[in-house]
Amino acid sequence: MNSTITLTKLDVLRVLRNTRYLIFAIAMPSVLYIAIGNSTKQTNGVEFKAYYMLAMATYGAFAGALMNNSIRIATERKTGWTRQLRLTSLPGGGYVFSKVVTSLVTTIPSVLVVFALGGTVFGVHMDAWKWVANAVVLWLASMVFVSLAVAIGYRFDPETAQPAVMLVFFPMAILGGLWFPLEGTLDKIGKWFPTYQAHKLGTDIITDGKISMESVGIIGGWAVLFAALAVVSYRAAQDQ
């Protein structure tokens, strides 16, 4: 276990140093929020600056969870890093464990940075417990994409993992209503996406302090699907 923790610590450190991570998971949502979010008009029952804060926090967390591990796992399998680790006392599942924990940890700053901007720069107000509940809910919901990242990382080469990630990333971001609020047909399609529902959990907490079971159900469904994909690709890769 000690060796797994050591590997995990270093894995977290290197993600925090990584430029791609900083751009996609921290800088981009912050910049978008500052550029677009400053409006007090009502959207889905909350002020737009709160609405867009939740959208950008969800976006940063999900982008971080999805992008880092998928490309990293694919690359590290290709370069032989995962083989190297098999020549140490690291337990069999230690590598994947480290990657999952790294995602859990490195999605936290995405949420916190955007929330801090909302609370200070834009003066978003809500009860203290709602801030905490929102942060935890968005963070947990973005975890759906941790297992999808593992699935992609074990299924694709570094070259093909990138487009595979983008194929998931854009629909999830756009149809999840994270970049702009959805209306009409797009909204009807979007509500089946986990990103949409994660964001909705946030606005629900602000408006009536409740968590919708429908949202949890849809996110849970995706979680099960992605976890199954992760297990299948992981197993297939081990047999090679």
């Binding site: 050591t6 370069t79 890093w81 083989r83 190297q84 140490t88 006392s89």
Partner: peptide, 26 residues
């Protein structure tokens, strides 16, 4: 072991890389 196809980590220093290996051996 030193593998021909052995990869190294990215975004870490030489010191950190070798330190990790020290921790992964008894």
């Amino acid at each position: 072991a030193m593998l021909q196809s052995g990869g190294l980590m990215s975004d870490v220093t030489v010191q950190e890389q070798v330190q990790l290996w020290a921790k992964l051996h008894p």
